[in-house]
Design a protein around this nucleic acid. Structure first.
Lengths: 331, 331
DNA sequence: TTGAAAGCGATACCAG
DNA sequence: CTGGTATCGCTTTCAA
């Protein structure tokens, strides 16, 4: 039990060949000419010993780790994000990389970058908020080829994946106005983790509302019945609400029903995410669905480009999703 | 841009000391007596160069990586699990370990173990279904000190964290019977990822129902209104339902309302998870809340024990949560 | 108080 | 076709 893990030298000895041959065989090096018989012996010896190569040693020698780090705290919860991550993992592992989620102990900026850099990953994906200019510099100098910021707006300092929250708000507001709404409200969650996204969605809604001459009220809403009830005069004053997402929409619909405000009769309602609960509400909830199916392969391709090329690329961004309106009964 | 990352030797040269001194200073080795002046010089040189140690090299030299791997596919979605993971991360990083989520490309058994073993982690947490005896052996022989299976029942081959799904079902069924239910149904989700947990919850409910002489019907339910409506005769035949979780409870409550079945008048309903939506439903949903607050520190402590000791421990298990009934209006 | 040097495991160059 | 061996970056023992 306490024996140290077998090394390639152990395999070599057991097979009666040199370490070099073991390496050639186990990695199928194209240039290497090793007889089929030796190949077999090496394979068998490795099998017998339960040999597993030491990633750290390999990294040290080759200078490339094949590791791609993504910061855990920057992946939103939910089946959508999880599915995307799984797909991304598949794409990347097909290309020979290893995707790993790293907690980084809620660090940000340079300290976070240092923690990531110790692993000498070949790429790092992290929330735009964690990647300031110096953090990116630390990563670059540690040999990270691709640094990609994840966030609601593109980063000035590195490549980024921007998620178009403003577009969601715009789509929702446009729909409400199309339906005849003359004054609308947009919810911004009071929860710290959600507020920023809420503000981006709001800004998109505001842009459309202004363009079409419809007044828009911002409603800062904590997720609680009391919070929603406290804003009752807001909901009574408008005839359309973009509720930030489906959860908030459900909250509002419950509170409005208890208060005798009819949806969509008195106020039309639009959510976002197309959660399962959207079709379970009565009236069924109109919502914005986000189609992220294109994102994993797009991102994987972009990463590969960045990782293969020598000089760091210009800060650019990809925009890998697409909001789609799903009209149901609440609007 | 293309310069290689600075090494400890670079730092040493810049500070005018030896590599050894750099190592002593940067790791504050207790035994090392280095003058404050040299200390300062070394620190400054490291700073100036943006030096970040190379984790792989350190692992190679010391034989310990400090890496703890947890398989991504075995962490359920949802804020609960995410919060737990964050807390666990904090606990472990406080102790000097680095928690990392690894996708493992949906591998299982020996291939998965090999992939994990390459990183020479000091501990691996993975779904019980992925860890057969040989997989555990591979990990052990790669020097992994702690192998912990995550699952609904304890593993015969290694230590495990078992989540007490049966206890949840038992609690829910007991409550329904206390409320006077004479025939109850328990939902088992048809979705592949959920079915197994559903069956464990069912078995707990069944145990209690049998002990108290109440007939229990198993209801295999896909998550859709049609699926739920197809089983209407089941819901009409019973006077209590344990709905597997809050999402399924919401589905059922919607379908029952549409069909004119009153909750809790005709049938009492209990969910699980105490999601935000539970209090938004009308009637408000009675549910089983899972208190996982103790789990991260418990698990971290257990891991630490396993990692420090030499011989692999007997397969035992910890049981780090606690179902609690939250009674509302639906029951 | 500091330095020289061995060695962790794998790779790849250069000989044979 | 195969083998020796230098090397990657870091820690740590032993000497100075």
């Amino acid at each position: 039990m306490n024996a140290k893990p077998p090394t390639s030298l152990d395999v070599a000895r057991l097979a009666g060949v040199s370490q070099a041959t073991v390496s050639y065989v186990l990695n199928d090096r194209p240039g290497a000419r090793v007889s089929d018989e030796t190949r077999e012996r090496v394979r068998e010896a490795a099998e017998r010993l339960g040999y597993v190569p030491h990633a750290g040693a390999r990294t040290l020698r080759t200078g490339r780790s094949g590791l791609i780090l993504i910061s855990m705290d920057d992946v939103p919860y939910g089946p959508l994000a999880i599915g995307m991550l799984e797909e991304l993992d598949r794409e990347l592992s097909r290309r020979g990389y290893t995707l790993v989620q790293y907690g980084a102990r809620r660090l940000r900026g340079v300290p976070a970058a240092r923690a990531w850099a110790e692993l000498r990953p070949v790429a790092v994906l992290a929330g735009a908020g964690k990647l300031d200019e110096q953090a990116v510099a630390v990563l670059r100098s540690a040999g990270v080829k691709a640094v990609v910021a994840l966030g609601a707006h593109s980063s000035a300092v590195t490549a980024s994946v921007v998620v178009d929250h403003a577009g969601i708000g715009a789509l929702a507001a446009g729909h409400l106005i199309d339906r005849g709404c003359r004054t609308i409200a947009a919810v911004v969650p009071a929860e710290p983790g959600l507020r920023e996204m809420g503000e981006h969605r709001l800004s998109g809604a505001r842009r459309v509302a202004e363009a079409r001459g419809v007044p828009l009220t911002r409603a800062d809403l904590p997720f609680s019945e009391e919070g929603a009830a406290a804003l009752l005069d807001v909901w009574r004053r408008v005839d359309g609400v973009f509720a930030y997402n489906d959860d908030y929409a459900m909250l509002l619909m419950t509170v409005l029903r208890d208060a005798g405000v009819a949806v969509p009769g008195d106020v039309r309602m639009v959510g976002c995410d197309d959660l399962p609960l959207a079709t379970l509400l009565r009236p069924r909830l109109t919502t914005v669905r986000i189609d992220v199916s294109a994102m994993p392969s797009l991102l994987a391709r972009r990463l590969e480009e960045l990782m293969e090329q020598e000089a760091p690329a210009e800060p650019d961004h990809i925009h890998p999703w697409n909001p789609v309106l799903v009209v149901r009964e609440s609007s």
